Amino acid sequence: MASHVVTTLWISRLVSHSALVNLAESEWTRWSTGMHLLVTDPAALSAARAIVDTVLDDVEDAASRFRPDSEICELAAAGGVRTAVSPVLADLIDAALAAARWTDGDVDPTVGSAMIALGYDRDIADLDPSTSRLGSVTIPSDWSMVEFDGRSVLLPAGVLLDLGATAKALAADWCAQRVQVRTGSGVLVNLGGDIATAGAPPNGGWHVLVQDTDDDPPCQIALGAGTGLATSSTCRRRWWRGDDLVHHIVDPRTGRSADPVWRSVTVAAASCLAANTISTAAIIRGHRAPDWIATLGIAARLIDRTGAVRTVGKWPQS
């Protein structure tokens, strides 16, 4: 039987436990969001969870903006000195710069200082969204400032990387791929709405309910093997800055939250990294996003500020 998973950008829960007769699952909270692991071979669950935890540990050590001992915080403190990086951070930076090139700079890994200026200077769980926070002036970003040779990085003084638009999605891809290779089980990994699958899915596929907020129209879709799904939202991770309600997706050209033309954009692609890159860029591109996504031949579902739904490409309705 098919599995049924509800996913929002931050929360995952099961629709029907009866559908999971031949599956095993693990759910937990990390990075202030819900994590969910499903495997088609119940005997593989313990090993699969250990693999996922190791990947998440490595990514957090490399790329957490909220840990002063992380590699990206050490890079920011290097004061313009070229610094060697771990293979994990090298892969994360490489992916982030590739996303920046591919989206003409819409997805920019140098928005860390702009995030802080907007008030996102701590873990979202510690940030009171109802409290006004006064940041400094807005700070435009430019990913071309990053000098990266595959093993070391040079950042101008004052530049802080924020890999949030790509790192969690790439982590989902890594988790799914490594679980499948090492255990042979079919797997779905959901890291707070960043979903990746690998290996043979259950009969009928992985059934996922896409719904960003409780008042958004729901949509159930079926995912096969080797698929990524990601949602970018302007309704989650938001807070007050002075008299302005801001959110975490920054337009790098202005240093401000992107105009919330879309409440959310969900993209299905060949990898979670590709899906999240496109969904993030779509939020930033606003009204231009549907036509751009159509040229990519990618399936997407966009919900505008009124709650109206627009789909692009062969959206995988179940």
Rank of each mutant, 00 (worst) to 15 (best):
M1W: 10
T7V: 12
L14Y: 15
S18Q: 13
L20N: 09
N22A: 15
N22C: 10
S26L: 03
W28T: 03
W28S: 05
T29K: 05
T33G: 06
D41C: 14
A43M: 12
A43T: 15
A44V: 14
A44P: 02
L45R: 06
A47W: 07
R49K: 15
V52I: 09
T54I: 04
V55K: 01
L56Q: 06
A63R: 01
R67M: 06
D69A: 15
E74K: 08
A77R: 07
V81G: 09
T83Y: 02
D91K: 07
D94G: 10
A96K: 03
L97Q: 03
D104P: 05
D106T: 01
V107P: 04
P109T: 07
T110P: 11
G112P: 00
M115H: 09
A117C: 15
L118P: 01
L118A: 07
D121C: 01
S130Y: 08
T131L: 12
S132W: 11
G135W: 12
V137A: 14
S141A: 15
D142Q: 02
D142E: 03
W143N: 05
P156E: 08
V159N: 09
G164I: 09
T166N: 06
A169G: 09
L170Y: 05
L170P: 00
W174A: 12
Q177P: 05
Q177Y: 13
Q177R: 06
V179K: 11
S185V: 10
V187S: 12
L188S: 02
T197I: 09
G199I: 05
G204D: 12
D214H: 10
D215T: 12
C219T: 14
C219L: 12
G224H: 13
T234G: 02
R238D: 04
W239T: 13
R241E: 03
R241D: 09
D244S: 13
V250H: 07
P252M: 03
P252I: 05
R253H: 12
R256P: 00
A258H: 13
A258F: 10
P260M: 13
V261E: 04
V265A: 06
V265Y: 00
V267R: 06
L273A: 11
N276D: 01
T277Y: 09
A281E: 00
I283L: 15
G286M: 00
A294M: 08
L296C: 14
A300H: 06
A300I: 01
R301I: 12
T306Q: 06
G307K: 02
G307E: 04
T311P: 08
S318A: 11
